[in-house]
Design a protein around this nucleic acid. Structure first.
Length: 835
DNA sequence: CCACTATGAT
């Protein structure tokens, strides 16, 4: 793979350009990018100035061979026959209008006594076949060449090879190349090789190219720019990024870069999705005053748009307009399409006006794009005026549908319905803008697509019943609903929990010959799962199984979670085993939800049993499943068993995640093993498992529980130092922890910090602070908190367990000189109930 | 149409 670039580098670093090589390079420059026609003038002509006599012969022959039908025994031919030379034959071939006539003349000339084709006449014929893509006669021609023992100059031979490459006869070109050399009919030079490489690059055969390149090297021929160009092209085409760049760099070093190479690389960057690089290259070309050709510009613009870099495409277009480039309809179509997709309607309309000013007629495609992204009726009316009178019904309906799409996309469903009803003829004309817009146009019955657009629009806005009535309307005018319409209606009915209508629609769907899809079934399955209708879910699973559709994991999981949320984890497990009976093996994710449910109802052993059962039946638990089990064991204080699971995680090639660590740290904290928990924190740091807010919060809570508020504060600072911002829960855990440790003053500071950050603490935090401050005999602060409790509406009712705490506080504060008057005011304002 | 797992308090 690396061989080719290294070879190229090797040669590139050698001393290049003997004087003669330089001369030939200059001449290549002239011919290489010219078309085959001009090429033949450079390399394929034996003499530039035919004599007057020759001119007469040429004209006569052209006229004879152009006349239809051609008669071989034309007496004129006998007179001309002795006068033909290779120059004459060449000129006649170029003057004949069809390859067939040229072929007839070519064969006639061959049979004339004393005449022999040479490399120039062969090339002239080959060029005609090549231009007209006649590969079969071209193949015959090269056989003739080999049999004729006609010698070819290296340049002429290169030309012939290019003719073959042009019609895709790569293998033939390769074989001819070797045979000619072997027989001694040609001694190829670097130009001949360049032509061969160019042909090979078209076939994309990197291997073949490599072989030829080694051959060039071993013959001692020097590479030039035109050797590397096809090589780079081939690399670009086959997506060999590194290699292409390596060739590019070599060419850069040698100063061989030109517009063609730049364009090739820009287009390739575009294909490789590196739009920025492509754009950079275009800018570099701009600075170097190298012009891109129009075709390249179009390719780049289309490429940018395909990668949805609309802005860059527009920018490129503007840049090139300045350079005098005017786009055609297809460029405008692409740009307008991109802008519409990007919802940049104003810019799209700018381009639209621009093209009209330039006299480029917008086509139906452009109108469709603009209409589908526009909902301004007066603009729509203007656009519709563009429709030519003779346009067929199908096209006009496509444009009407685009209008419907535009309205629907912008949620203007009144307008969309109004237009649709007008098309159906169920709405008589009034004076609305829509009517004006469509007055001049023919009335065409809407089709399925029209209804599909409007029904979808209605569904997106939650107007299900209107959508359903349109669905009936369409059937009245004998318009057949398609699967998409059925599915979307069914999905929306399911989301609204309207199951009876759903089933009715599905029946109709089947009767009309449309098979429900996995989407249809899963809409219904999802609805049943949301309803926790286990029996219904199983019934639909049965039906799905019979027609080969699979239930979506998210819905099975949803049902399990919903049941578990109500403590019905055992039923959830039952459902999962029912699924198995129906032939669907639930995913580990659904099982995990069930484990979690079992653990929540303290059925850790059942969960553990099911977990091990699954493992032994080939199910592969993921890390989340392990975490759930670890959580269960931790909460049940069975920490020794956690170790077993950790070992199993390792055996399965998994790695404990932050979640795993957090769970175990929490388990250790709640178990009173705070020091072990702290050790785990250091282990996380060692293993580069970044601790998060939850890790730190868990530890702060644990330290406060262990009566170590100062250590908790150290952790708090450590967390912030690590750039981990505390959330509401972290603040509350710290404040509450400090209160429990009788540090209300410190706790109060953090409450204030929290308030500054616009985070609201729960009621219990205020209550905890209130009692801690009272305990600390800090009555003024306690009063402040009490007032906040009142202001925030956190005053507990008489059945609240905090009621006694607050009542007690009010009593104490009203007896203290510093706060009694404040309490009095609160009571007078009616904010505190008298006790 | 890839979902399941971890922190405070109640």
């Amino acid at each position: 793979m690396e061989l080719l670039p290294s070879l190229i580098r090797m040669q590139a670093s050698c001393k290049l350009f003997k004087p003669c090589a330089l001369r030939s390079l200059v001449s290549f420059k002239i011919v290489y990018y010219s078309t085959i026609d001009t090429h033949s003038q450079t390399l394929g002509s034996s003499s530039s100035f035919p004599s007057n006599d020759d001119k007469f012969v040429v004209d006569s022959l052209i006229s004879i061979f152009t006349k239809q039908p051609f008669t071989p025994n034309n007496p004129e031919l006998n007179q001309l026959s002795p006068k033909i030379t290779s120059q004459v034959v060449e000129s006649v071939l170029k003057g004949l209008n069809s390859w067939k006539n040229a072929q007839i003349f070519f064969k006639w000339a061959l049979n004339q006594p004393g005449f022999k084709h040479n490399s120039y006449t062969y090339n002239a014929m080959a060029s005609i076949y090549s231009r007209t893509q006649q590969s079969v006669p071209l193949r015959v021609l090269i056989k003739d060449i080999l049999n004729s023992c006609c010698t070819f100059a290296p340049g002429a031979f290169g030309f012939l090879i290019r003719c073959l490459g042009n019609v895709g006869l790569i293998q033939e070109a390769n074989e001819l190349f070797d045979k000619m050399r072997l027989i001694g009919l040609c001694v190829p030079n670097i130009y001949s090789y360049n032509c061969l490489l160019e042909a090979i690059s078209k076939s994309g055969s990197i291997d073949l190219m490599e072989t030829r390149l080694k051959e060039i090297h071993s013959l001692g021929l020097q590479f030039d720019k035109y050797t590397l160009t096809p090589i780079m092209q081939a690399y670009c085409n086959s997506g060999k990024f590194e290699e292409a760049l390596s060739v590019y760099n070599t060419m850069h070093k040698r100063g061989w870069l030109d517009a063609h190479i730049y364009s090739m690389l820009a287009v390739s960057y575009c294909k490789w999705g590196k739009v920025d690089k492509a754009f950079e290259l275009v800018e570099r070309m701009d600075n170097l005053d190298i012009k891109l050709n129009e075709k390249t510009v179009c390719v780049l613009i289309h490429g940018f748009l395909k990668q949805s870099h609309v802005a860059k495409a527009v920018q490129l277009f503007a840049k090139l307009q300045k350079a005098g480039f005017t786009g055609d309809v297809s460029v405008y179509d692409a740009l307008i399409g991109g802008l519409c997709r990007n919802k940049e309607i104003d810019k799209a309309f700018c381009l639209y006006s621009e093209m009209k000013e330039l006299g480029i007629q917008p086509d139906v495609g452009i109108l469709t794009k603009l209409l589908s992204s526009c909902s301004d009726t007066s603009i729509i009316a203007k656009l519709l005026e563009e429709i030519p009178e003779h346009e067929d019904d199908e096209t006009v309906l496509r444009l009407y549908n685009a209008v419907l799409k535009g309205y629907s996309n912008d949620g203007l469903m009144d307008e969309a319905c109004h237009l649709l009803q007008k098309l159906m003829g169920t709405k008589s004309s009034t004076d609305s803008l829509i009517d004006t817009a469509f007055k001049v146009k023919r009335m065409i019955l809407p089709n399925t697509a029209s209804f599909s657009i409007v029904i979808d629009g209605l569904l997106k806005k939650g107007m299900l019943d209107l959508a359903l009535s349109l669905f009936i309307d369409m059937q009245i005018i004998a318009c057949k609903p398609n699967i998409l319409i059925y599915n979307n209606l069914i999905d929306e009915l399911c989301k609204s929990n309207r199951l009876e209508e759903t089933f009715k629609l599905m029946r109709e769907m089947k009767e009309s010959g449309l098979e429900p899809t996995h989407f249809t079934y899963n809409s219904i399955y999802g609805c049943l799962c949301r309803r926790k209708d286990v029996a219904g879910a199983i019934a639909i699973l049965k039906e799905m199984h019979s027609c080969g559709h699979h239930p979506w994991i998210k819905y099975s999981t949803l049902l399990v979670k919903e049941l578990c949320a109500q403590g019905r984890a055992l039923e959830a497990c039952h459902f999962l085993s029912n699924m198995v009976q129906e032939g669907f093996l639930p995913d580990i994710v659904s099982y995990s939800a069930a484990f979690s449910g079992l653990i929540n109802i303290h059925e850790v052993d059942k969960a553990l049993h099911l977990f091990k059962d699954l493992c032994s039946h080939g199910h592969c638990p993921d890390l989340a499943a392990f975490n759930i089990m670890i959580n269960g064991l931790c909460k049940a204080n069975r920490l020794t068993e956690v170790d077993n699971l950790l070992n199993e995680i390792a055996t399965r090639g998994l790695f404990p995640s932050v979640v795993t660590y957090n769970l175990i740290i929490d388990g250790l904290c709640k178990n009173g093993s705070i020091d072990k928990a702290m050790l785990l924190l250091s282990k996380m740091l060692e293993e580069n498992r970044e601790p998060n807010v939850i890790t730190y919060t868990t530890l702060m809570d644990g330290l406060c529980r262990a009566g170590r508020p100062d250590d908790a504060l150290l952790i708090w600072n450590e967390m912030q130092r690590k750039g981990c911002t505390p959330n509401r829960i972290a603040f509350m855990a710290l404040i509450h922890g400090l209160c429990k440790c009788c540090k209300p003053t410190a706790a109060l500071q953090y409450l204030r910090e929290m308030e500054r950050k616009k985070m609201e603490a729960d009621q219990y935090i205020y209550v905890a602070l209130l009692s801690a401050l009272l305990c600390d005999l800090n009555f003024p602060s306690a009063f402040e908190i009490l007032r906040e409790i009142v202001d925030r509406g956190f005053l507990p009712g008489s059945h609240d367990k905090n009621y006694m705490i607050v009542r007690d506080a009010v009593l104490k504060l009203s007896k203290d000189d510093r706060t009694s008057s404040g309490i009095q005011v609160l009571i007078e304002e009616g904010k505190l109930p008298t006790c």
